[in-house]
Every structure is written in structure tokens, then in C-alpha cells.
Nucleic acid binder design. Structure first.
Length: 671
DNA sequence: TGGCAT
DNA sequence: CGTA
DNA sequence: GCCA
């Protein structure tokens, strides 16, 4: 049951108010000099409301006090105003006479009480600021060295349309990738590549961490930081962002903040940290902020920071499950997995390029993300990492050791040192990365595969598309299909060498698909030696026998044969190549295979952590295992296909038995 | 301070 | 090391 | 980076 703790929401925020209706607003403050809001003694909620009100009136807000012509705050005395400015690195000398009205004078800064704003917002008309001005100063140079406590707010510098999101460095290597892809050609011989040896040590990815750290706790957090909120609001997190601290601006708050209440989600009020225990939709309200965190996470990936990946994944999953647009960093910091760092990033985000009520917020940003997007190192590593068969280590080797900067470099200087699958990854780089697969095509591919399985193995073969498609994505990066057959005996035995019977079946199915002309390349076919530890237990009670067993699978490159518009005879098939994975699961593993291959990644990691903590079990796509005895936990994930059970039913039963409970695949999008 | 999926 |  |  949901806690009834309520979060006050500013009425001027999205959802309710349309954006372009700015035209007929009564209050127009756009002629005023840049306004800086003093956070002192104001709650973040109040600050946010004031900002929204000012922005709604067209006022120009700044987050750099040095730029401000007007500073508004809960300040009642001259001396206080001067000190507030000085505390922010703005030194000034009082100006006695010239306190006229709203006019802008270069180098002048006026400190004004909040009443001025609340009055205007309440009346809906502009009010002379004169009677609310407590201090007028003329900016002067700081006496000595600049203090480091101040500065920055780099947030508002205009992002100069950097080279966008694509990985297109040297463009797709289409032209040069005419070279043959060897059948055997493996072994990463040392290329004859040029090498501009560069130390990986002080790269931007490493620096990004430090940057992020130093920019984290700024003023808002020192005074009333999220930490305080967390610790102060003592008992097991009542999950409530700071309500209206009492300030001199009560009326305004009451008018603009009062109404609209949010119910705190269970996972927040109960501090549930396992993403497998809560709903995470595909398109959450905070998706834009999440996408920025994903960029930082990718930077951590590319800098080999495994723990950073886990940390950001946790935060991302938590935010992705949050059903409301976040308003303040304090609110964010109530979510499990989101603490100081995450909330300070959000603070910077929400105060970056301000957004008008009702507008999309995708013009907001975070400084470190802008730096990443502008950096050659990050964008190039990201591009290399996008090559199928190239992981972080190889991407870094390309960049730092070989000095390559584009796909063309890879082709020109390194082609012969690439493994066969990497060559395929380069050849189809663009098709794999830019051309997502529509749902209808995924379904068509699945139909063809299931038909092929039935053709070679009988009508009882069944299959289910997992991966992103099953989680509801409109476009998929690849197709993951899990096939099974209700007859366990079909998979028993180890004849046929390495992989045993199951591999024989994949081989037959893939062979059929190749013959039919759908498969252009086989990137991997078999079991063991690959990834995962998807052990399957056939019959035995001893553990030794099946240590190396894994689910059989094939990783293929696929191409639709029919192209339209229908081309001339003999013309080339220009349909995009697709990545297709086929996984074969004996019925005893069908449930775990489906659960394991549906994802998303953080959902899977949390599922495994949960199952370990709750039962002491180990979960993988080949079964559930008791860690003490090493035995397979009987019946879990078993497909009772002979009794008419469907594959989804089977997964459902498994989730119940694991103590997780049913979760729609569409609600496993942990980002 | 150790753990973070398999 | 790379892959889901 | 967050949590127990």
C-alpha cells in the first residue's frame, strides 16, 4: 500500500500548462536585467516555484551571481545583502543615491526582497521594485585572489551544437570495407598501425570523474543539502522532500505550491533497492535526465570503472521507476540509490538552461556531459565500442595504443589484425548501430525461425522473442529468440562432441535458415567457451558432470530477402543486416532462459542479487542453483509444455517461486 | 569497510 | 576478452 | 557511487 506522504507540487509545472501560450501572459518581465535567486533560507521547493513564476513571466534568470543585475532573496538588510553577494564572490561597494527604478546600469547590482516577486505574481502585473530594494551595489574587483569556494555554475554556457550523438567519426567505412572477410582469419596480430602513444592515465574520462566530484557540493547542498534531509528526517525514510520551511514568503508558497499532491511510490517509502521488485516503464517521466546519466555511465564503462557503472545503473533504474517529473534534487535524493552525487547532478540539470512551464526539458544539460560529448576521446571510444566484437579494452587499445581515430583508420591500419567477427562488426557498423529493427520485422524474423525449428524438429518446437522487443521497445537493436521443445529427452546426451545434442539442434536450425537464404554470417554457434555460465542439469545429482554445460545458441547476421520496391533482376539486396540471437533451452531451463534473456541488464543484476539474498540461490539463464549444495533447485523454471503450459506461464510461475512475483516485461525497462 | 550478476 |  |  502506498504511503500517503505527500509532496507539494508547483502548479506552474508541466502537465497542466501549455507552452506556447506565453503570448497572452499579462506579466512581462523580460526587460529586466538578469535575476539571480539567493537560495539562502529558502527551501528548494520554494526556489523552484519562484523560478517557474519568473520564467513564466519571461524574466531572465541567471545562476551566476556575478552576471546578475538583480539579486532576489530572503534578505532584509543592507549589510546582509552585501554579505550574501560577497559570499558568492561578488564584491561590491554601496551606491547611495542612484536607486531609481528598474533600469539597468552596467556594473550595478540590486538586492531585492522576495516580496517584490510574490507581489507581482499574485497581482499578475509588474510592480516597481524600488520599495523592496535593500541594497544597491557597484561591482568591484575582489581585493585579493579569487576564492575557490565561489565560481562556476558552468551550466548556462550555451552548448555549441557539438557533433551530435552519432558515432560517425570517419563516416561508415562502407567504401573501404570492401575487403574480404576471411573465414578463419582470427588472432589479433599486431597491426602495422601508426601509434601515437598516449597515456590512458590522464584522459578526459578519468578527469570527468574528478570534474564531477568537484562540482558536486555547491552551495545548495552545503546549507540544506540532501544529506541533511536524509538524516534529519529520521525514521526509516518517510520519503518526503522538505516542505515549506518557514520563510517570509509564505503566501506565495501557499498559492503556488499547495495543491497537487503526489503519492510517494512504495519503492521509495519502503526504500526498496531491487529493481526487479518494482515497475519500470519504457518511457518514464524523467527520461531526459536519465539519458544524461546514461552518458556518464557510458563514460565510466569506457574508463573501466566497473563500480561506477553499477552505481549509475542503480540510480538510473531508480529514477526510471519514479512516476513523476522530478522537481528538485531534494526530491530525487529520497529515491533509493540516489544520494549526494546523483542529486547534485540533478540540481545542476534542473538549473541549467531554464525551461518554461509546459516545455520539453531536453534543452537542459549537465556540464560534464557536455564535456564528454565535445571530447574526441569519449566520442571516438564510444564509436569503437559500438563495433560488434570490440569491447572496452579493444576500443581503448585502438585509441590509445594504435592511435586510431576513425573507422577508416581501423580499416586502413588494422584490418588484418581484426578478428573475423570484428571485421563483420566493422563492415555492418552502420546497419547494426543506426538501423533499428521495427517490431513488425522482429515478428517476421521470429516467425521464420520458429517455422524453421518446426520444419527440422517437429511441430512441438516453440519460441518466444525476448530482449528489448519483449520489453515493449518500438525499435530493437537485435532479435533475441528463445526456442524450446517440451520433450526433455530431446536435449539429453552429449553425443556429437563439444556441445552435445542441444548444439546439434541449433546447428540444424541454423543450417535450415542458411539454406533458405536468411543468414549471411554466423558470428557464433555452440555452447561453452562463450559467455555466461548457463549451466544446465540434465538428470544427475552430482555437480561435477554439468559444470561446463551452457545453453546452446547461435549469434547470426540476418538479412531479409525480399526487398521493395522490387528491384531489377540481379540487383543487389539492400535490406539492412540484422543481428539475431537464437537460444535453445531444454524445457527444464525454458523459464530461466526466458527470464534471463528478457532483461534489462539492471533488472537481471538485481534479480540475481535478490535471489542470492533471499534464498541463497544462484540464478542464471540455465537454472536456479543452491549455493550450499550446488544442486539445482528442482522445478524452478521448468516448462510443463507437455501439460499444455505456455512459455510465458512458465516464466510467470518461476517469478512467483523466486519470491519476486510477476512483473510484466514492459515493466522491466531499468535503463 | 566490503560488496556490487552471471 | 567479448558476448547477452 | 551507494548501502549495510
Amino acid at each position: 500500500m502506498a504511503s500517503t506522504t505527500q509532496i507539494p507540487i508547483d502548479l506552474t509545472t508541466p502537465s497542466s500548462s501549455p507552452s506556447p501560450a506565453e503570448a497572452d501572459r499579462v506579466l512581462d518581465l523580460s526587460h529586466l536585467p538578469p535575476i539571480y535567486l539567493l537560495p539562502t533560507r529558502l527551501s528548494e521547493v520554494t526556489l523552484h516555484s519562484l523560478e517557474q513564476g519568473l520564467l513564466g513571466a519571461g524574466a531572465l534568470l541567471t545562476y551566476n551571481p556575478a552576471e546578475a543585475g538583480v539579486v532576489v532573496g530572503d534578505v532584509n538588510t543592507k549589510r546582509r545583502g552585501l554579505l550574501e553577494l560577497r559570499g558568492r564572490g561578488v564584491w561590491s561597494e554601496e551606491v547611495i543615491g542612484g536607486v531609481d527604478g528598474g533600469g539597468e546600469e552596467e556594473g550595478l547590482v540590486k538586492v531585492v526582497r522576495i516580496k517584490w516577486i510574490t507581489e507581482m505574481l499574485e497581482k499578475g502585473e509588474e510592480v516597481e521594485m524600488g520599495r523592496w530594494v535593500v541594497y544597491v551595489g557597484k561591482k568591484v574587483a575582489p581585493p585579493v585572489v579569487k576564492e575557490e569556494g565561489e565560481k562556476e555554475e558552468g551550466e548556462k554556457e550555451e552548448g555549441e551544437k557539438e557533433e551530435g550523438d552519432d558515432h560517425g567519426e570517419g563516416g561508415p567505412a562502407k567504401k573501404k570495407v570492401k575487403r574480404e572477410i576471411g573465414e578463419a582469419g582470427d588472432g589479433v596480430g599486431d597491426g602495422k598501425a601508426t601509434a601515437s602513444l598516449k597515456s590512458p592515465g590522464q584522459s578526459i574520462l578519468e578527469r570527468a570523474k574528478l570534474d564531477a566530484q568537484e562540482q558536486s557540493p555547491h552551495r545548495y547542498h552545503r546549507g540544506r543539502g540532501t544529506r541533511h534531509i536524509r538524516h534529519d528526517s529520521e525514521p526509516s525514510r518517510r520519503a518526503r522532500p522538505p516542505l515549506l520551511h518557514h520563510t517570509s514568503t509564505g503566501e506565495f508558497e501557499q498559492i503556488h505550491i499547495l495543491a497537487q499532491l503526489r503519492t510517494v511510490p512504495d519503492y521509495v517509502s519502503q526504500n526498496l533497492k531491487y529493481s526487479c521488485l518494482r515497475d519500470t516503464p519504457l518511457k518514464p517521466p524523467n527520461s531526459h535526465f536519465i539519458s544524461l546519466l546514461q552518458t556518464i555511465r557510458l563514460a565510466r564503462t569506457l574508463s573501466l570503472d566497473a563500480i561506477g557503472i553499477r552505481a549509475y545503473s542503480t540510480a538510473i533504474a531508480s529514477i526510471a521507476a519514479y512516476p513523476y517529473p522530478l522537481l528538485t534534487s531534494a526530491e530525487l535524493s529520497t529515491l533509493p540509490g540516489c544520494d549526494g552525487k546523483t542529486s547534485s547532478l540533478f540540481h545542476e540539470y534542473i538549473h541549467s538552461t531554464p525551461t518554461f512551464a509546459g516545455e520539453e526539458d531536453d534543452n537542459r544539460t549537465i556540464h560534464v556531459v557536455q564535456e564528454l560529448e565535445a571530447s574526441e576521446e569519449f566520442t571516438t571510444l564510444r564509436m569503437f565500442y559500438g563495433i560488434w566484437g570490440v569491447g572496452v579494452h579493444t576500443a581503448r587499445e585502438f585509441y590509445f595504443k594504435n592511435g586510431w581515430r576513425s573507422l577508416d583508420d581501423v580499416v586502413e591500419f588494422g584490418w588484418d589484425s581484426l578478428s573475423r567477427v570484428q571485421q563483420i562488426g566493422v563492415k555492418y557498423y552502420e546497419e547494426f548501430n543506426e538501423h533499428k529493427i521495427p517490431r513488425a520485422e522482429v515478428e517476421r524474423i521470429a516467425d521464420i525461425i520458429i517455422s524453421a525449428a518446426r520444419k527440422v524438429g517437429g511441430e512441438k518446437w516453440d519460441g518466444i522473442v525476448c530482449g528489448g522487443y519483449r520489453r515493449g521497445k518500438g525499435q530493437s537493436g537485435d532479435v533475441d529468440i528463445v526456442l524450446s521443445h517440451p520433450e526433455e529427452s530431446l536435449f539429453e546426451g552429449n553425443v556429437g562432441g563439444k556441445g552435445g545434442v542441444a548444439v546439434e539442434w541449433v546447428g540444424r536450425i541454423v543450417g535450415e535458415l542458411e539454406t533458405a537464404g536468411w543468414v549471411t554470417h554466423t558470428l557464433y554457434l555452440g555452447r561453452g567457451g562463450g559467455f555466461g555460465s548457463q549451466r544446465i542439469d540434465h538428470t544427475t545429482t552430482t555437480t561435477a558432470a554439468h559444470d561446463k554445460d551452457t545453453l546452446a545458441k547461435a549469434m547470426l547476421v540476418w538479412q531479409e530477402q525480399e526487398y521493395n520496391p522490387p528491384a531489377e533482376l540481379g540487383e543487389k539486396n539492400r535490406n539492412p543486416h540484422r543481428r539475431v540471437d537464437i537460444i535453445l533451452a531444454p524445457p527444464s531451463c525454458a523459464g530461466t532462459a526466458i527470464l534471463g534473456w528478457t532483461g534489462a541488464t539492471t533488472f537481471e543484476r538485481d534479480l540475481r542479487r535478490f535471489v542470492e539474498k533471499r534464498w541463497g540461490w544462484k540464478f542464471d539463464s540455465g537454472g536456479v542453483w543452491d549455493r550450499r549444495t550446488g544442486e539445482r533447485v528442482k522445478g524452478l523454471g521448468d516448462w510443463r509444455g507437455m501439460e499444455g503450459e505456455g512459455l510465458v506461464e512458465c516464466e510467470k510461475r518461476l517469478l512467483e517461486e523466486l519470491g519476486v512475483g510477476w512483473r510484466e516485461p514492459e515493466m522491466r525497462n531499468t535503463g
